[in-house]
Computed example of a mutant assay.
Amino acid sequence: MSIEEQFNQEMLDLYQVVGKATGYWANYYLRFVRKHGGLAYAKKALGKKDDTQDGFKKLIEVGRPDLSVEATVLKGEYRSLFTYDEIKEAQRRIDTVPNYAWRKPIKPSMNFSGEIENDELFTEGSIKKVTVNLLNFRT
C-alpha cells in the first residue's frame, strides 16, 4: 500500500474515530473523502488560510484537536505528501489551539483523587449522607 493510500485510509477511518469519540459526525467530510480522496480533502482544507475549517473548530470545542486533519497531516509518515506551505498552515492551526483544549490522559486511579476512600463502595442510585457547614450571609 502506497503512502497516499495509507493516508486516504486514515482519513476515512478518522470519520468513525471522531464520531465515536466526540459525537461529531462530519458527513460532508466523509462524502468528499470518498469521492475525491483524503489527500485532496486535506489539501483543499489547508488551502483556506483565512477560514479555518468548521470541523477543526468543533474538535477544539470537544477537546480533541489531536483527531483533526491538521494533526494527521503533521504525522511524520505523511509529510512527504504535502508542500512546505501546507505543512506550515497545518502547524499554524495546531499552534493556535489553546492549552486547555487539549485532552489530557488521566489514569482511572487519579480520578476524584482524595475524594473517595478506597474502602467506600458507591452504587448508582444509592444514597449517601453528606454534612456541610453553611454560613448564611444577609445583605
Rank of each mutant, 00 (worst) to 15 (best):
K35H: 03
M11D: 07
L74F: 11
Y29K: 03
L134E: 11
P65S: 08
R92P: 01
E10A: 09
E5H: 05
E5M: 07
L121H: 08
E5A: 15
T123F: 13
Y15D: 11
D66T: 08
G38V: 01
K128S: 13
I87M: 10
D66V: 06
Q6P: 01
S126Q: 15
M11V: 06
K49E: 13
Y24A: 14
L46F: 00
L121G: 02
E10N: 15
W102Y: 11
V62W: 11
A101Q: 07
K88V: 05
A21G: 04
A42D: 00
E117D: 09
L39K: 02
A45N: 10
D51N: 13
E120N: 03
T131Q: 13
E124T: 11
W25C: 07
F56V: 01
R31I: 04
S109L: 12
D50M: 01
F7R: 00
D119A: 07
K128L: 13
M1W: 09
P65K: 08
A40I: 01
A71G: 04
M11K: 03
N111M: 14
A42Q: 00
R64E: 13
A21W: 07
W102M: 02
N27I: 09
L135G: 03
P108L: 12
D13S: 14
L30C: 02
G19Y: 13
E4S: 11
E115G: 04
D95Y: 02
M1H: 08
S113M: 12
L134S: 07
Y41N: 00
N27D: 14
G47A: 05
S109N: 09
E10G: 04
F112S: 11
L39D: 03
Y24F: 15
T131I: 14
L30E: 08
F122N: 06
Q53I: 06
L81Y: 02
W102C: 02
K75R: 15
Y100F: 12
N27Y: 09
D66A: 09
K57C: 08
I116N: 04
Q91F: 05
M110I: 02
P98G: 05
E89T: 14
E5V: 07
K57R: 15
R31A: 08
P65Q: 10
T96F: 03
S80N: 12
T83R: 11
K43S: 03
G114Y: 00
A101R: 13
M110Y: 06
N133L: 10
R64N: 12
M110N: 10
Y29P: 00
N99R: 12
R34F: 01
R34L: 04
A26R: 10
T96C: 07
K57T: 13
E86L: 07
R103Y: 10
K49N: 02
E70N: 11
K104D: 05
S109P: 00
L12R: 15
